[in-house]
Design a binder for these strands. Structure first.
Length: 578
RNA sequence: GCGGCUGUAGCUCAGUGGAUAGAGCGCCUCCCUCCGGAGGAGGAGGCCGGGGGUUCGAAUCCCUUCAGCCGCGCCA
C-alpha cells in the first residue's frame, strides 16, 4: 500500500540522481519503517546509513542529500535528518487518509495479494490416528494449520488442505485398537474377554464399541472391525473439526496407497535408485540407561532397509519388516511420491506436533531418495500444549480414559475464543491452556477486545444510518477533514494488513494476525474515545469518519476471518455466562 | 549422548538490525449529560538468562555457555 508505493517512488527518485547513479537502488535500500515515536514522523529511512559506507561518505551528509531529493515528492510534507543519519518523513495527512478509498474499494478482498506466479501448495495437518477423538493437543495443529492455509491463500498461493488418514490395515496400533474394541464388544454382550496388553480403555472406547455393536457382531473378523471402527472414528473427527471451522479439501486414505500398489511402486523406485536393500544383517538398538546402544546382529532373513543415513537421517530405517509387512515409512514414501510426483504440488508442508521431531530427518531423506529437491518438502513443528484444569495438569493420553477432547473445549469456551487462544502465541512456544482461566476470562479476553471493537463500529454505523448519514462513498475532499493524530494512526494501522499477511506467509508466524487485530482494535478504541463520529452539525466530517470507521471494520473483519474467528455485529453480555 | 524448541515486567506473552523496550492480567489513582465503560487516561514494575563476536547500531544475526520443555521403536 502506501509504504510500498513510497519505497518505489523514492528508489526511483534516487536512481535518477547523478550522485547515487553508481549504486543499485532498490526498494529494500530505501528501507522505510514506521518509527516507534510519533515525533519521528510517519516513516523513517535508514538508507543513508546503509549507503554511506560503500560511498565513503558521512551518513548525516548523505542523509541530507537524499532528503533534498525526496522532498520533491508530492506526498512529503516535511523531511528532516536526525540522530546518526535517519531520514524522518512526515507526509501530507491527505496522502494517508486517501488510503481509505482503496480499503473501501477492496472491501473483503482487502489484505489479499496477487502473486505473479502462485505456488501450488499442499498442506497436511491434524492427521491423527483413527483410534480416538481429536484432543486439545491436536487442536493446536488444527487451529494453526487452518489459519496458515487461510493466510497462504490470502498471500496469493493456491492451497490444498489435506488430512492423511492412518487407516492402513497392516498398522500395529490400529490392530490393537480393533482388538480392544472387539474385547469391549464381547464384554458388553456378556462374554468374558481379556483386553489385550496395553489395550485401549476409556469412555470413548466403550462408546464407540457400543455404537459398533449395533452394526456388526463381535464375532466379525478383525479386519472388518478395524475398518468399521476407523470409519466411525473418522466420522467423529470430521464432525469435530468442521464445527471448529477447520476445513480440508480432501481426506486421504493411507490404505488406498497400499491397495493401489503405490507403496510397492515407491519401494521399487527406491531400490532402483540404490537407496533400499536387504543386506543380510540387521541392527538392534537397545536402551542402556540414558543411551541408545546399537549392536550389529546377523539375523537372516533381514528386513528391507531404507538407507536414509546417507541422505542425512540419523540412522537407516526399516522399510519392509522381516515378515514382509511394510513399515509406516513405506506409506510416507508413497504419499510423498503421490504429492510431489503424481499430483505436481510445488511444495508440501506438513504440520506436526512436538512428539515428531524425529520425523524431520527421515522425511527429508524420503524426499531426496525419490529424487525431489529437498526444499519442496517442509515440516513445521508446533510446540506442546499443556492443559490445566482446577490447577492440575490434565492428562491427554488416549489409553487412560481421561482425554480432554477438542469438542469439549470449544463447547466450554466457544470456537472463537479457542481458536484465537491457540494461534495468538507463536507455534514455536509451548502453550499452557488453563481452562478455568479461559472460562472466567470474559471481560479480559483478548478475542472479546477485538470483537467488541468490531461490534462497536457496527453500532456507530447503525447510528449513522439512523441520523441519515447512511453509507457515504469516499470523497477526496474528506481527506483533509481527517487530521487528528488518532485518525491518522487508525488509517495507518488498517493499512498494515497486507504486509502482515505477506510476512506470515513467509515465516508461518501466524500469531501476527492476532497481534494485528488487537493493535487495530486498540487504535480504534483510542480514536473512538476522542473523535465523535456522528455529529449532526458537521455532516461532512461525519461522513468522512463513517468512511474511516467502515475501513477499520473491514480491517478487523478480514483479520478475524484469517484466523477463523467471527466478527459479530453485536456482543451480548449474557452470552458470557453459560 | 544426539537433535528440536524456549529463556523479555510479579504472571502470560508480543516485538520487522534502528532512536527512549511493548501489551494484557494483577496492584494503585482517575474519566460516562455523549455513537456500547467488554472502553479510555495516568502510576508502580526491566543488567531482554550469562559471556564473546559481526555492525555506524543487536532483545533481534553468529559463536559459546547455563537453565527449562520435548523427541530419539521392525509404534504410528
Amino acid at each position: 500500500m502506501l509504504k510500498d508505493q513510497l519505497q518505489l517512488d523514492f528508489s526511483h527518485l534516487l536512481s535518477k540522481s547523478p550522485l547515487l547513479k553508481e549504486q543499485t537502488i532498490s526498494q529494500g535500500v530505501v528501507g522505510l519503517a514506521e518509527p516507534k515515536m510519533a515525533e519521528h514522523g510517519d516513516f523513517a529511512s535508514n538508507a543513508a546509513m546503509v549507503l554511506a559506507k560503500s560511498l565513503g561518505t558521512n551518513p548525516r551528509e548523505l542523509a541530507s542529500t537524499i532528503a533534498d531529493i525526496w522532498k520533491t515528492h508530492p506526498d512529503v510534507n516535511t523531511i528532516e535528518v536526525a540522530g546518526p543519519g535517519f531520514i524522518n518523513i512526515r507526509l501530507n495527512p491527505s496522502a494517508i487518509t486517501n488510503q481509505i478509498y482503496e480499503i473501501l474499494t477492496r472491501s473483503h478482498q482487502f489484505g489479499n495479494q496477487k502473486k505473479t506466479t502462485a505456488r501450488k501448495l499442499h498442506v497436511e495437518f491434524v492427521s491423527v490416528n483413527p483410534n480416538g477423538p481429536i484432543t486439545i493437543g491436536s487442536g493446536r495443529g488444527a487451529a494453526f494449520g487452518d489459519t496458515l492455509c487461510r493466510i497462504l491463500r490470502a498471500a496469493g498461493d493456491e492451497v490444498f488442505a489435506e488430512y492423511y488418514i492412518n487407516d492402513a490395515l497392516n498398522s500395529e496400533q490400529m490392530r490393537l485398537f480393533a482388538l480392544s474394541v472387539q474385547a469391549h464388544m464381547k464384554r458388553e454382550a456378556g462374554i468374558k474377554a481379556e483386553l489385550p496388553e496395553n489395550g485401549y480403555r476409556g469412555d470413548y472406547v466403550l462408546a464407540v464399541s457400543h455404537e459398533l455393536a449395533k452394526k456388526i457382531s463381535h464375532d466379525a473378523d478383525l479386519q472388518t472391525i478395524q475398518e468399521e471402527v476407523q470409519k466411525e472414528m473418522i466420522r467423529q473427527q470430521r464432525e469435530s473439526l468442521e464445527a471448529f471451522r477447520v476445513h480440508f479439501d480432501n481426506w486421504f486414505s493411507e490404505q488406498s496407497l497400499h491397495a493401489g500398489g503405490k507403496v510397492a511402486e515407491a519401494i521399487e523406485k527406491l531400490k532402483k535408485n540404490g537407496h533400499a536393500d536387504s543386506e543380510p544383517y540387521s541392527w538392534e538398538t537397545t536402551r542402556q540407561g540414558k543411551d541408545n546402544v546399537t549392536t550389529q546382529t546377523s539375523q537372516e532373513p533381514g528386513p528391507l532397509w531404507f538407507r536414509s543415513q546417507k541422505l542425512g537421517d540419523e540412522k537407516d530405517r526399516v522399510l519392509v519388516r522381516s515378515d514382509g509387512r511394510p513399515a509406516y515409512i513405506a506409506g510416507d514414501l508413497a504419499y510423498m511420491q503421490d504429492k510431489l510426483g503424481d499430483r505436481h504440488f510445488d511444495q508440501s508442508l506438513l504440520i506436526l506436533g512436538p512428539d515428531h521431531h524425529g520425523y524431520i530427518g527421515r522425511m527429508d531423506a524420503v524426499t531426496r531418495a525419490l529424487g525431489f529437491e529437498a526444499d519442496r518438502f517442509r515440516i513445521i513443528i508446533y510446540q506442546l500444549v499443556r492443559f490445566l484444569k482446577e490447577g492440575q495438569l490434565a492428562p491427554m493420553r488416549k489409553r487412560d480414559g481421561n482425554i480432554y477432547e477438542l469438542k469439549d473445549l470449544y463447547k466450554e469456551i466457544g470456537v472463537d475464543a479457542a481458536r484465537f487462544f491457540y494461534i495468538m502465541r507463536s507455534h514455536d512456544t509451548p502453550l499452557d491452556f488453563d481452562i478455568d482461566l479461559a472460562l472466567k476470562l470474559g471481560d479480559d479476553n483478548p478475542v472479546f477486545y477485538v470483537q467488541y471493537a468490531h461490534a462497536r463500529i457496527c453500532s456507530v454505523l447503525a447510528k449513522a444510518e439512523e441520523e441519515g448519514i447512511g453509507k457515504p462513498l469516499w470523497n477526496p475532499s474528506f481527506a483533509d477533514l481527517l487530521h487528528d493524530p488518532k485518525e491518522l494512526n487508525l488509517v495507518k494501522r488498517i493499512c498494515d494488513l497486507p504486509e502482515v499477511v505477506s510476512r506470515c506467509a513467509e515465516d508461518f508466524q501466524v500469531q501476527r494476525v492476532a497481534t494485528y487485530a488487537a493493535e487495530l482494535a486498540r487504535a480504534f478504541h483510542l480514536f473512538y474515545d476522542s473523535c465523535r463520529v456522528v455529529q449532526k452539525d458537521q455532516p461532512e466530517l461525519s461522513s468522512a469518519r463513517v468512511c474511516l470507521v467502515e475501513a477499520a471494520r473491514i480491517g478487523l473483519a478480514n483479520a478475524l476471518n484469517l484466523v477463523g474467528v467471527s466478527a459479530p455485529q453485536r456482543m451480548h453480555r449474557e452470552q458470557l455466562v453459560p
